[in-house]
């Protein structure tokens, strides 16, 4: 009881600290500061119709690089942990049951469509909502559906890591190319800018988003695959 009331006290203190932030919130009418610059000059400087993509990939490209690194580390640590725990995989019995026939057929029909949706989301990242992270997550969901409907199916860990490494290296390489050919790291002017609002515009943003999409997709697929492998009775 004492403990609960102490916790309540801590929580109240926290609420009192944050409450002025909520209470003194003033609604804005226009953008100010750096956001105004992005809104007014983003179209000329970056050429992406989706300003969030412009901020994520170009203006704050280093954040994205760090984020991809963190995700890679998380995926690697999860793989390591689950690997160590599988000490006796040889005699472990697999307890996967067959799914219903309807689900198998439906997954055969839907998985290519979900893959295409993921590809659409990251290829059109500079025009419509979405981008590499969302597209990668959708592709990982497609693989998760595949694993759910056919648990016996194995797919190779090697292919996942090869795709991941190649796209990661190419991402950094394109970033470095920006230093050589244009204004700085991850500058997107290394390719022609194209006409605003069409598929081939915004310089390197579509390419970078395709690479991020493949990388994030393979990382998340790796996490899901490792977790599924760990379900064996061991």
């Amino acid at each position: 009881m004492l403990r609960n009331s102490l916790i309540l006290l801590v929580l109240l203190g926290f609420a009192a600290a944050v409450f002025p932030l909520v209470h003194s919130y003033e609604a804005k009418d226009t953008l100010t500061g750096v956001a105004e610059h992005y809104a007014n000059y983003g179209k000329e400087e970056v050429g992406a119709a989706n300003l969030v993509s412009a901020v994520v990939v170009t203006y704050r490209g280093f954040d994205t690089l760090g984020e991809v690194t963190i995700l890679f580390l998380a995926s690697a640590v999860i793989g390591l942990f689950l690997k160590v725990s599988e000490t006796h995989t040889k005699d472990s019995r697999s307890v996967f049951f067959k799914s219903t026939e309807i689900l198998v057929t439906a997954s055969r029909l839907l998985v290519p469509m979900i893959m295409l949706l993921g590809a659409y989301i990251f290829i059109n990242g500079h025009l419509t909502p979405g981008g590499g992270f969302q597209g990668g997550a959708v592709i990982a969901s497609a693989f998760a559906l595949l694993l759910l409907s056919r648990p016996q199916k194995q797919f190779s860990h090697k292919l996942i890591s090869v795709i991941e490494s190649i796209s990661g290296i190419t991402f950094v390489f394109i970033g470095l190319l920006g230093i050589l050919l244009a204004g700085g790291f991850l500058d997107n002017h290394i390719f022609a800018m194209g006409k605003f609002g069409t598929l081939l515009s915004a310089g390197a943003i579509p390419i970078i988003y395709i690479l991020i999409g493949l990388k994030v997709g393979s990382e998340l697929t790796g996490i899901v695959r490792n977790l599924k492998e760990s379900q064996k009775v061991g």
Partner: peptide, 9 residues
């Protein structure tokens, strides 16, 4: 397509 399948499962 998907909603009948999921409710069947």
């Amino acid at each position: 397509i998907s909603n009948p399948v999921s409710s069947h499962v």
